[in-house]
Simulated assay, not measured.
Amino acid sequence: MHDNRTQQVEEQMLVRKAQQGDAQIFSLLVNKYQRRLNHFLHRFTHDEQITLDLVQETFLKAYKALPQFRTDSQFYTWLCCIGMNTAKSMAAISGREPQMITEIVDDDGEQIDVLEYLSDYHTPEGQLLNRELIDAVDEAIDNLPVSLRQPIILSEVNGLTYEEIAHVIGCPVGTVRSRIARAREILSVQIKTRFERE
Rank of each mutant, 00 (worst) to 15 (best):
L41R: 05
K64F: 14
T86D: 02
T86E: 15
V55W: 01
E57V: 00
R43H: 09
E97R: 03
V30F: 15
I104C: 07
G95L: 10
Q49E: 13
K88M: 11
W78A: 05
D107E: 14
L29K: 11
L37E: 02
F69H: 04
D108F: 09
L41T: 03
W78Q: 03
A65V: 07
H39R: 12
M90Q: 02
S73N: 15
V105S: 06
T45P: 01
V55S: 01
N31K: 15
A91Y: 02
A62W: 07
Y33L: 02
R36L: 01
G95S: 14
T51H: 02
E103H: 11
T51R: 10
I50R: 01
S89N: 10
Q34T: 11
H39I: 09
D108C: 08
L29C: 09
Q74G: 07
L54Q: 08
G109L: 08
A87S: 15
T86K: 10
D53T: 04
P98A: 07
E57P: 00
H46A: 10
F59Y: 13
P67W: 04
E48N: 12
M100C: 02
L41V: 11
M90P: 04
D47C: 05
D47N: 12
V55A: 03
F40G: 01
R43W: 00
A62V: 08
R96Y: 14
M100I: 05
D106S: 06
G95A: 08
I101Q: 06
E57A: 10
A91Q: 13
A92C: 07
R43Y: 05
T58E: 06
S94E: 10
T71R: 01
F69G: 01
L54S: 06
R35V: 10
K64H: 10
W78T: 05
T86P: 05
F44M: 09
L66K: 12
T77A: 13
R35G: 11
H42Y: 13
I104F: 10
T45G: 05
R43G: 12
N38I: 01
K88I: 13
Y33R: 02
I82C: 04
H46R: 15
I93R: 03
F44L: 10
C80G: 07
F75L: 09
A87V: 08
R96E: 13
R36E: 06
T51Y: 11
G109C: 04
L41E: 06
H39C: 00
L79E: 08
A65H: 09
T58D: 07
K61N: 07
T86Q: 15
R70N: 13
W78Y: 15
R36Y: 03
I82G: 08
H39S: 13
C80V: 02
A87M: 13
K32I: 03
E110D: 15
R36V: 00
L66W: 12
I101Y: 04
P67M: 05
D107F: 14
E48L: 15
Q56H: 11
D72K: 09
D47M: 00
F75H: 06
Q34Y: 13
K61M: 09
C81N: 14
S73R: 14
C80D: 01
K88E: 14
D107A: 15
R96D: 00
E110K: 15
H42R: 09
T86V: 15
H46W: 10
R70P: 00
S94H: 09
